[in-house]
């Protein structure tokens, strides 16, 4: 077995790091997508969970149907569907973009904050995350127990007031461990936008490989960046959780 003669990993790493500005731009875009997708998933997920748990026969079923379908199908297929939908319906999407750039260490770093591709990617990620978050919220709502809502109504609160002031505050606290899980790992899923040409961290890695022909080191570097980011987010949320604890909740 002959292992090819090649420059040492450190040497390779240094070559790859010459492209740090592109990699960094990719990282920023990944984070940008992550934050928006997480927020969208949070609000939509919360609505879906409430509809599924407290909505009438009709709304509850629609919500359940949405959740089960999104969770039962690949994110990639969902992304392609959303991305190609306008063109299949002959709706023009235009060639527009909103971007921002700044200069760091003499390098110009530009990221496209929003254009059609980015929007499609965001929507797909947000709609997808919403379905998963909805299940976490629903689990938390159920764990609060029916007695709480009963007690709220027994002092004259309407069902909606009871849900808003008594059930949800408790559910949102109880959901933190499971939700932190989703929040910490969502960055992983944003890479899917690579398939529609959004210049996220993975795309930039790919591009760097095209220029340097150094694949293993580059991809390993990207993997490490993801790992570190996810670990930091996870630990950060843990600390937040400990700081906001209420006895017994």
């Amino acid at each position: 077995m002959i292992i090819q003669d090649r420059p040492n990993p450190i040497g390779e790493l240094l070559i790859v790091l010459e492209y740090w500005d592109h990699i960094f731009a990719g990282f920023l875009l990944t984070m940008w997508l992550y934050v928006w997708a997480l927020m969208m998933g949070f609000f939509l997920g919360l609505i879906l969970a409430n509809l599924r748990q407290y909505g009438g026969w009709f709304l509850s079923r629609i919500s359940t149907g949405y959740i089960e379908f999104i969770r039962g199908t690949p994110l990639l297929a969902q992304l392609f569907f959303i991305y190609f939908l306008p063109s299949s319906l002959n709706i023009p999407v235009g060639d527009w973009k909103i971007e921002t750039s700044f200069i760091i260490l003499n390098k110009d770093i530009t990221i496209i904050l929003l254009d059609y591709r980015t929007l499609a990617g965001l929507l797909a990620l947000g709609l997808n995350s919403a379905a998963y978050q909805a299940e976490y919220f629903r689990g938390a709502i159920i764990s609060v127990g029916t007695g709480q809502l009963m007690a709220a109504q027994s002092i004259g609160m309407s069902r909606i007031a009871g849900i808003r002031h008594i059930v949800l505050p408790q559910a949102l606290r109880r959901v933190i461990p499971a939700w932190s899980n989703e929040a910490a790992y969502l960055p992983k899923y944003t890479v899917v936008v690579y398939f529609i040409g959004v210049k996220d961290l993975f795309s930039q890695a790919h591009r760097t490989v095209a220029f340097t022909f150094i694949s293993l080191t580059t991809y390993v570097l990207i993997a490490i960046i993801f790992l570190v980011t996810i670990t930091l987010i996870s630990k950060g949320l843990d600390i937040l959780h400990k700081k906001t604890m209420i006895p017994g909740l």
């Binding site: 790992y185 992983k188 899917v192 293993l216 080191t217």
Partner: peptide, 16 residues
């Protein structure tokens, strides 16, 4: 758990 699957695939498919 901390690495995207696609990155893992590429590490093996193109890195190896």
């Amino acid at each position: 758990r901390g690495i995207p699957l696609i990155v893992l695939i590429y590490v093996f498919a193109f890195g190896l």
